[in-house]
């Protein structure tokens, strides 16, 4: 069975449930709205990347919407029993999970890319930067790219958590703890071990600001988020292959 067929089928599934469109609207509203508000209330910034960083603030909360969207794409199948049908018509389970992950991830990456552009536009129209805008400098392009990659990786992590836990509440709960609650909570605790743990969690580390988690350099942060996403996904694929539906 061609992989393309599975991709088409998964895209039909994703676009034909309301939660996808609620999440999309919420994501655009939260991140875009926060970006424009933050940029509008920042008259000037010392550098282009700082101005951009301010406008990207909304992704801190906004990534949770991606998490919910990704989790729901899987857990609604198990909750409704749809998984029985899906796995009957596509019995090669890892292929099916790959197709679903790819569709959800590409969709989330695309939305994130649109939002990044919207936020960048806000920064560069509403915030003054001395010496003009450095649109094409690596300091500006890198956080934009990282933001998109992070959106994609959170989507992968979300699909993986949904596959492992099969429960919306469980997967969203653990996902929120991993990417949003624990990193700053551990950072606030301040113990050496807690700081290490905070760094090792898949928190958003796109710019200088690690959203109150303990910061790492961007390559390390990227590797950590990717590591969580990949390991969780492999675990999900293994469990999906082994478990009864």
């Amino acid at each position: 069975m061609p992989f393309r067929a599975l991709l088409r089928s998964e895209w039909t599934k994703l676009r034909s449930i309301r939660s996808t469109w609620w999440c999309t609207a919420l994501y655009l509203l939260v991140v875009g709205g926060t970006g424009w508000l933050a940029a509008a209330s920042t008259n000037s910034a010392p550098r282009s990347d700082v101005a951009l960083g301010v406008a990207l603030t909304g992704f801190g909360i906004g990534q949770l919407v991606v998490l919910v969207l990704g989790v729901l794409a899987v857990t609604t199948e198990f909750a409704s029993g749809m998984a029985l049908v899906s796995l009957t018509v596509a019995p090669r389970r890892t292929r099916l999970l790959t197709a679903k992950t790819l569709v959800v991830t590409l969709y989330c990456a695309l939305l994130t890319a649109v939002l990044v552009v919207v936020c960048a536009a806000a920064a560069f129209t509403l915030t003054d930067v001395p010496g003009g805008l450095a649109l094409t400098s690596p300091e500006v392009l890198r956080p934009m790219g990282l933001q998109v990659v992070n959106g994609a990786l959170v989507a992968v992590l979300a699909v993986a958590l949904g596959t492992v836990l099969r429960s919306t509440a469980g997967a969203v709960g653990i996902g929120v703890a991993l990417v949003f609650v624990l990193p700053p909570a551990l950072a606030l605790w301040g113990k050496e071990l807690a700081m290490r743990a905070s760094q090792a969690l898949p928190a958003l580390r796109v710019g200088e600001d690690a959203f109150a988690a303990v910061a790492t350099s961007w390559p390390v942060g990227l590797a950590i988020v990717a590591g969580w996403a990949v390991v969780a996904w492999l675990l999900g694929a293994m469990l999906l292959g082994r478990r009864d539906v």
Binding site: P2, E10, K13, S80, V89
Partner: peptide
């Protein structure tokens, strides 16, 4: 062709979309 559980489908999806997704998965 299999029918395992008449409730096994996403409640928010239309009948058409449900069948379309199945059809597409097998080309």
């Amino acid at each position: 062709g299999a029918l395992i559980d008449p409730r096994a489908r996403h409640p928010g999806r239309t009948a058409y979309a449900h069948l379309l997704a199945l059809a597409q998965s097998n080309d």
